[in-house]
């Protein structure tokens, strides 16, 4: 009897520690994997951006971001993302509103949301080829316009492979993404608010500018930011369409990765990559902030 009593505290004292250790062991595969394939690559980029070419810390690579060709690439990337985000956000919001006015469980709404889910993922090489088949030099629309109306789509140069073309192509996945992220906010608008506005003598214009507008503004802005980050990080579509030069940051990074011509420039690619992460992180942080604001009223 005395023996068991003496033995009990010992076991109690020993087991929790052992348990904690064995419990941690269960997560080792996950953490090891994520360390090798996510944390180390991230650190490679961050540390590499601040490393000199012969080792040691250096700000040369980060300073190289001030070169005009890199600044131009960032400018073009940001402009392309902003315009495609804006166009996508406006058209996507209109489409989302059109869906909200339809029957909530109707076929129309279900089909369009499902299609939006698919098309928002549609990007990359396949999308580039879809547009080449449509408005490429021998594309369906190009040929049709030429044959029936004698209109040359590319009278002033082949804009499909430049920023205007990229903007158009990006819109193709931006609109569906906007529908997906903006629809929940629109669903949060209660019909009672409109009725309340009307019973107080408010007009439709007043309802949209004073009630629904301010309520939806954070959601709209947040969604637009998400669209911005989406097109800012896109690479494959641009890589498949643009064959000459590297107008965008992702394409500049490709140049830095694949060409080993410029010795002493190895880390500039990492600095550009870090620049991209900074832009995306800032945008995503703002998005999270606006998202919180949205959920206050329209959650």
């Amino acid at each position: 009897m005395a023996e068991t009593v003496a033995a009990v505290p010992q076991r109690v004292a020993r087991r929790p520690r052992l348990r904690g250790v064995t419990a941690l062991l269960g997560t080792v595969p996950f953490f090891a994997y994520v360390t090798i394939f996510l944390v180390i690559p991230t650190l490679v980029v961050v540390i590499g951006a601040f490393a000199g070419n012969e080792g040691g810390a250096s700000l040369d690579s980060v300073k190289a971001l001030g070169n005009s060709y890199i600044l131009d690439a960032f400018g073009r990337s940001i402009a392309l993302s902003a315009i495609s985000a804006l166009v996508g956000a406006v058209l996507g919001a209109l489409l989302a509103y059109a869906l909200v006015t339809a029957k909530p469980d109707g076929v129309l709404r279900r089909v369009v949301t499902a299609a939006a889910g698919v098309l928002a993922q549609f990007g990359g090489v396949t999308l580039a080829f879809a547009f080449l088949a449509t408005i490429g030099l021998s594309g369906f629309i190009t040929v049709w316009l030429q044959d029936t109306f004698n209109v040359n789509l590319y009278e002033n140069g082949v804009w499909l492979f430049e920023l205007p073309g990229l903007t158009l192509v990006y819109t193709y996945f931006q609109i569906p993404l906007m529908v997906i992220v903006f629809l929940p906010a629109l669903d949060g608008i209660r019909p009672q608010w409109r009725e309340a506005t009307e019973s107080l003598g408010g007009t439709t214009w007043q309802y949209w500018t004073r009630v629904a507008g301010p309520l939806l503004a954070p959601a709209f802005l947040g969604s637009a930011l998400l669209l911005f980050a989406n097109s800012f990080s896109a690479y494959a579509t641009a890589a498949a369409l643009v064959s000459q030069g590297s107008p965008l940051v992702p394409l500049q990074i490709r140049g830095a990765l694949t060409s080993e011509v410029l010795l002493g420039q190895q880390n500039v690619g990492k600095a550009m990559a870090l620049g991209m992460v900074v832009v995306v992180s800032v945008v995503m942080a703002l998005y999270t902030l606006l998202q919180k604001r949205t959920s206050k009223w329209l959650g």
């Binding site: 690559p41 590499g48 690479y235």
Partner: peptide
């Protein structure tokens, strides 16, 4: 928050 193109840069040495 890490675009694929950035991940590639870090993944190259790995």
């Amino acid at each position: 928050t890490i675009p694929a193109i950035v991940l590639v840069v870090g993944l190259a040495p790995v």
